[in-house]
Write a protein that binds this DNA or RNA. Structure first.
Lengths: 232, 232
DNA sequence: CCCCCTATTTGCGCCGGCGCAAAGACACGA
DNA sequence: TCGTGTCTTTGCGCCGGCGCAAATAGGGGG
């Protein structure tokens, strides 16, 4: 288990720490259990009884909901510094979604009891949690509206931009999505099919907006993409 | 302003009051301002600065998000006993949705300052709020999945059933949706068009599953509808 | 009780996007 | 370096659902 996690970077990405003095954080962390996940491992499944909350330290989680017919909707990606499953654990409910590591990852885990103790010691935690949940509610409501009202190509554009903002890294070519993202993944996130995403990316590549290869997408002209996403 | 609101009914419908002794509730209520709304009045608009939280006492609110092109997505209906806008007010943000009275309504309003005071006095409020928000997050995530994966007719069935469970009233004919619900409304809630809803209801009426007229829907065979919603 | 405004129904034609199928490209392991 | 499995591309045909248009039905106000 290596220790060169950049905590200050993690702090800045997470609403979790708002209002804490930095010297309290090691205390909170010390009650968590640090664990490594191989790529592809499922941390928890929709419908399982919720026992642990997670904060991602390294890597990335894919949070999705599964439909009976096998199709899946990707609800969000969880980046380093972000939490997942905190509330279902507190409430003693089942997980409403499934979380899977994409790429080698590390997370800090807290069990229900520890969480409740921490919340007693630091009431601020409940307030911060409320903020995080509301933010996610806004996000999914907005995407719900888009899914109802916009055409596929526009939605793919918005999806790609959203992922880019959360997980993009600047390179000489443009902004690179910093993890393996297949056409199928982008389709599951957008609410369309593998084929349509593929055709769309081909078109965009011809226009010079993106460059894509196997499980890899670079946005070379974010401006054009934003403008297209907004005007249709 | 009449006073024959059935508070015990309101308590039972709302997660808001979980864990309170009943004798504290009059205190909380006394800090709210009670107000009457005519049918069609807009309580707040998406993007406005959030100044007031509401609890519906009578009537019903329609909560929706608007798209630039004029189309709207109905996010949910707020029934008596339920809250809306509590968190945006606390966070000092803008309203993320629009709320409009459908039918003559009454609500209890609290402003930001009062809310913050109440939360200090009764910390339980924050915890209950968290529960409410999470419930809504689950709801919208589930509908998001359905919107991505299911065909229109199935989604209309699920939508109607969801509305029925929240706002249905048993009658001799079957279960009546207890407020004016047009084909357009159901379309905006489901993510389809007025035309498709109309055709679908006609079909269902022939099968004996529903009886509908102008802005009025009665589910006469809930079983059949549920079975259809689940199996497609 | 009648009028007018709004909601609903339904025929018709179109088309965006789906999904099969087959070929091509790439990545990794032996 | 080659082979194999997975991901991607693209031609092709189909069809679910949209949306116009016109007729019809209600219902609330005067």
């Amino acid at each position: 288990m290596n220790n060169q996690i950049d905590f200050s970077d993690i702090f800045s990405r997470s609403g979790w720490f708002v209002g804490f003095e930095e010297d309290k954080l090691p205390d909170i962390f010390s009650f968590g259990h640090r664990r490594v996940y191989e790529s592809g491992v499922t941390l928890f499944r929709e419908g399982d009884h919720a026992t642990k909350s997670y904060m991602v330290l390294k890597g990335r989680l894919k949070v999705s909901k599964l439909h009976e017919d096998g199709r899946e909707a990707i609800v969000r990606y969880i980046n380093p510094g972000e939490m997942t499953a905190a509330v279902s654990v507190l409430k003693g409910k089942d997980y409403p979604v499934t979380a899977q590591a994409i790429g080698p990852s590390e997370a800090l885990e807290w069990d229900r009891e520890t969480m409740l103790n921490l919340m007693n010691t630091y009431p601020r935690i409940a307030i911060n949690l409320l903020g995080i949940v509301v933010e996610r509610l806004d996000d999914i409501q907005t995407r719900y509206l888009e899914l109802q009202t916009e055409r596929v190509e526009q939605r793919i554009a918005r999806s790609l931009l959203r992922i880019m903002r959360q997980s993009g890294r600047k390179t000489s070519e443009g902004i690179l999505i910093d993890f393996r993202l297949s056409r199928q993944d982008l389709a599951d996130y957008t609410g369309t099919t593998l084929y349509t995403v593929s055709r769309t990316l081909s078109r965009w590549e011809q226009k010079g907006w993106t460059v894509s290869s196997r499980e890899r997408i670079v946005v070379t002209n974010p401006h054009a993409l934003v403008s297209f996403a907004e005007t249709g």
